[in-house]
Design a protein around this nucleic acid. Structure first.
Lengths: 362, 362
DNA sequence: CTCCTTGTTGAAAACGCTTGCCTGATACTA
DNA sequence: TAGTATCAGGCAAGCGTTTTCAACAAGGAG
C-alpha cells in the first residue's frame, strides 16, 4: 500500500471461532505513514508538536486505511466514555418520550451517547442500572423520576463523588445537586387561577404519586390559588394516585360521582386529564360544557383528545437540552456548580375549559 | 484491613485537577486476598481451577472492598461491551416508545444496555450514529426504521461483517439479514376484510412513507382484500404520506372532501387514524356513524381517542423481545442464522367501525 | 564555539482486566 | 519408587490508545 509494504493492514482475529473482521488500529496507520504510534496519536488529537509533513502523511494513511479510533481504548485511559446514563420510569410514557428525545438529540450534537434505563420507579431496578452504568464508565447520570427517594443517589454520591448527577424535573430530598426544574407552583397556580377566572369555584385536583415532588408542588400551587381568591379548599376534591390515564379515570370517576361534584378539574398531568375525559364520558358529562378540564405538560395527548386539552406547557425540550448542556459542561470543565435552574411554564388555552354556566351553579 | 496492610486500598487519581474518587481495582482485591490478580480474575469469572479456600478469600475481599469490575477494561480484551445500538426514527413516536421499552427491558434482563439513536429517517444522521456505535464497540445493531434504504446497512456489513444486525419491522432491499416482522399483508387484509364485512365498499387507504416496507405491504393487503371481494379499487381512494397524525389529517381531509367520499378508511397506522379523526371532526362527519376508521398497531393512541379505535394489533412487545433474544444469541453463539421471523397481528374491534347504514349508500 | 531554546519525534509506561503458559504440589496408578 | 494425571495458582503478554520523558536537531544568542 502506501509504502510498498505487503498487505497486512489490520488484524484478523477470532471470537468463538468466528472471524471478527479486520480492524485497523493506530499501529497500522503508524506503519503506513512511517511514523511512531505516538505521533499518530498526536496528529489525531491535535496535541503537541507535529510537522506539516508528518501531519499530512498520517492523515493520508488514516483516510486510505479508513482508520477509526477505538473508543473503548481511549475510554480506558481517559476515563471518559462519552456516554450518559438516563434514568426514567418508562419510555412508553409520552412525557418521557419527548424528554428523552430532546436529551438524546442534544447529547448527540455534543458528541455523547445516551444509555436508556427504564426503572418503573422501582428502586431495586434503579440500583441495578446504576451499578451497571458505573461499571461501564459512563460520564454522568441524568435522573428523571417522579419519586424523590434519595437512597440510590446517595449511594452513588458516596462511591463516586466525582460523577456528575443531574436531576431533571424533580428534587431529591436533603441532597444538593444540579437540577433542572419547571416551576410547578407557578404553573399550577396559573392553571387554577385560569379556572377561577372562568367562574369555577368547585375545582378538583388529581395528582400523581403522593410523595412525588411534582404532585406536592402542583398541589401547593392549586391550594394557594384557591386561597388567594377566597375559595376554601375542599379535601374531598383532592385525589392522588399516579401520573397515568387509569389513575385519572378512577379518581375522576370518584370526584365526579359526588353529589356536589366539581365543575372543573385540574389534572396534575395530561395523562391524568385523559383519564378524566374517559370518566366524564362514562358519566355522561360533556367537556367543557359540564366540566372544564386542565392538564399539565402539554404533551402530545393534549392535541389528540377532543376537545383539545387546555394545559400548562412545560418546556420539555428546552429542559432536556439544558440538562445535557449542564452535564457536558461538568464533564468538560470538571466544575460542579450545583445549579438549580427553573423554567417557567405557560398556559395553553384550548377547548377543554369554559366559563361556567350560571345555570349550573344555581 | 484484611491482612493488616496499611489502608491504601483503591487509588486516587485526578482528571482536570479534580479528584476522581477512589476506584478499587482487581489489584487491590488481589492484595487483600493475598493472591495474584490472575487468580482473582479466575474466581470472578468462575473459569479455571480455584480452591474453595482461595475462592472464599477472594469473595470476601471483593465484598469488603466493594469491588466492581471495570467493564471497559473487560470490553477491551473481550471485544464485547454488552451494549446494543438501537436505531429508530424518533422516540417521541409512541410506536417506537413501546418498541423501545420492550427492547430495553429484554436487553436489561439479558445483561445488555441499549444506546438510543434517533435518526429522523435521515441517512446522513444514521450513518453518523453507526460510526459512533461501531467505534464504541457495540455488540450489535437493531434497526427499526420504516425506510428500506440499504446504503448504511451495506456499509456496516462491509466494514464489520461479523457485527450482528437485526432489522425490526421492516425489510432491507437485496440484503439477507435477521429480521423480525409483523405480517403486514395479513393484517391489512384482515382490516380491509373487516370493513367489507360491515358492508363498506368505498374504502380509502392512507399509507405512510411511499417506499416504506410497511406502507407497501399494507397496501398490498388492502388491495388483495378488495379484489378478493369483487370490489374494484379506486386510485383516488389511496393516499400516501407519512406515519404521522398530520399526514392523516391532511390526507383524510382530501379523501373525505371528495364527492363520492369513502365510507370507511383504513389507516396504515394509528397515528394516521388519529389524523383522520381530526379531519372527520373538521368536516362534521361522525365516527363511526358517518365514517368507519380502522388503524394499525394498537398503540396507546387507540384507547385515547373517542370513539376508541378499532385497529390491528401488532405484537410490539413480543417482537421487541424476540429481536433482542436473537441478537443476544448471535453474540453468544456466534452463529448467524439470518432468520426471518414473522408475527401475526390480530384484529381488535372497538368503537370506530360500524356496519354501514343502508341510507348512506342509497 | 558553546549554551539555550524551540521544535519534532520515538520509546515505553500506563489504563484494568483476561488468558496462555508454566511450575509445583498432590494424588493416584502400576 | 517412579510415572502420570489432575489441580492450583503465578507470571507475563496483550487489548488499543494516551501521555510522559528523553533524545536529538536546528537555530539563535552570547
Amino acid at each position: 500500500m502506501l509504502n510498498g509494504s505487503p498487505v497486512t493492514i489490520g488484524k484478523r482475529f477470532h471470537i468463538k471461532g468466528r472471524e471478527v473482521g479486520q480492524v485497523v488500529t493506530i499501529k497500522d496507520v503508524a506503519k503506513a505513514a512511517n511514523v511512531s504510534i505516538s505521533t499518530v496519536s498526536r496528529v489525531l488529537n491535535n496535541s503537541g508538536y507535529t510537522s506539516a509533513n508528518v501531519k499530512e502523511r498520517v492523515n493520508k494513511a488514516v483516510e486510505e486505511l479508513k482508520f477509526q479510533k477505538n473508543m473503548v481504548a481511549t475510554a480506558m485511559i481517559k476515563k471518559q466514555t462519552q456516554t450518559f446514563g438516563l434514568i426514567i420510569p418508562d419510555i412508553k410514557n409520552i412525557f418521557y418520550g419527548e424528554l428523552t428525545r430532546a436529551i438524546e438529540d442534544k447529547a448527540h450534537k455534543l458528541g455523547f451517547n445516551v444509555i436508556l434505563c427504564n426503572t418503573d420507579n422501582d428502586l431495586e431496578k434503579e440500583s441495578e442500572y446504576l451499578n451497571f452504568l458505573i461499571r461501564k464508565g459512563i460520564d454522568g447520570i441524568i435522573f428523571s423520576t417522579p419519586e424523590t427517594n434519595d437512597m440510590n443517589v446517595r449511594e452513588v454520591m458516596k462511591s463516586r463523588p466525582d460523577l456528575p448527577i443531574i436531576i431533571l424535573g424533580s428534587k431529591v430530598k436533603n441532597v444538593r445537586l444540579d437540577e433542572v426544574l419547571v416551576d410547578n407552583f407557578e404553573g399550577s397556580y396559573t392553571a387554577t387561577r385560569h379556572l377561577i377566572d372562568l367562574g369555577h369555584e368547585r375545582i378538583g385536583y388529581i395528582g400523581g404519586q403522593p410523595d412525588s415532588y411534582s404532585t406536592i408542588e402542583r398541589q401547593r400551587g392549586y391550594l394557594a390559588a384557591l386561597e388567594d381568591n377566597g375559595i376554601t379548599s375542599n379535601p374531598t376534591y383532592i385525589e392522588l394516585d399516579e401520573f397515568k390515564i387509569d389513575s385519572g379515570f378512577e379518581k375522576g370517576k370518584k370526584l365526579l360521582a359526588e353529589e356536589d361534584r366539581p365543575t372543573a378539574i385540574f389534572a396534575a398531568n395530561d395523562a391524568i386529564a385523559v383519564g378524566v375525559y374517559k370518566a366524564a364520558r362514562e358519566l355522561g358529562l360533556r367537556i367543557p360544557e359540564d366540566l372544564s378540564v386542565i392538564g399539565f405538560d402539554d404533551s402530545q395527548f393534549a392535541e389528540i383528545v377532543f376537545p383539545e386539552l387546555t394545559t400548562i406547557r412545560t418546556p420539555i425540550a428546552q429542559m432536556g437540552e439544558k440538562t445535557v448542556e449542564l452535564a457536558v459542561q461538568i464533564v468538560k470543565d470538571g466544575k460542579n456548580f450545583k445549579e438549580s435552574i427553573t423554567f417557567q411554564p405557560t398556559l395553553v388555552e384550548r377547548g377543554s375549559t369554559q366559563r361556567i354556566k350560571k345555570a349550573v351553579k344555581s
